[in-house]
């Protein structure tokens, strides 16, 4: 699980940098109107694209931390074996969604916008770069879900931790 910790750490650092940049960018937007007296032409667009990245990549991070909201009435009432089966099903469903929509749909979207040479109006960046966060985040969600699927499938190696909130399996 050392690799898992590296992934968490790198992802965390990237997200902190993106979030800090986003904050400074919007403050600059206000400041540029008054301090410099010249409204900035790109801050609005940059802020929106950073939000797409923070939101989508952050969703993968939150998936890794098992923070996404769920209704767990059925899982709570299930037997330990039932819980395991449910965890297998839930993780498989998440994997299928991330694969079909975020990875395959996302790559197709990136491909179309890059192939057709679409650029953003203000910054002029290829829109494919903005959308690239979808397949990236999809792959990370698949990775985290596979880890948790393995924990549910082979409980002997990860005793008792498959359904609790601790992202770090006890070794």
């Amino acid at each position: 699980m050392k690799f898992r910790r590296h992934v968490d750490r790198v992802l965390g650092i990237v997200l902190v940098i993106l979030m800090a940049t986003m904050t400074i960018n919007v403050l600059w937007q206000v400041a540029s109107r008054y301090v410099v007296g010249r409204p900035s032409a790109f801050t609005d667009e940059l802020a929106r694209y950073l939000l797409i990245w923070v939101g989508t990549l952050g969703a993968a991070y939150a998936a890794g931390q098992r923070m996404h909201l769920a209704i767990d009435i059925v899982p709570q009432k299930a037997s330990p074996a039932g819980k395991r089966r449910l965890s297998l099903i839930i993780n498989s469903i998440v994997i299928v969604f991330a694969l079909l929509v975020m990875v395959i749909g996302g790559i197709n979207l990136v491909y179309i916008t890059l192939y057709l040479d679409q650029h953003s109006p203000a910054l002029g960046v290829p829109l494919g770069y903005v959308y690239a966060v979808l397949p990236l985040s999809g792959l990370l969600i698949i990775y985290y879900s596979v880890v948790s699927l393995m924990e549910a499938a082979f409980p002997a190696e990860h005793q008792g931790d498959m359904l609790d909130d601790d992202p770090e399996p006890v070794r």
Binding site: M19, G55, T56, L57, G58, A59, Y61, A62, H68, L69
Partner: peptide
């Protein structure tokens, strides 16, 4: 902040 936000953003 990012985690809390991202949960809402995915929704």
């Amino acid at each position: 902040t990012v985690s809390t936000t991202a949960i809402v953003m995915l929704l």
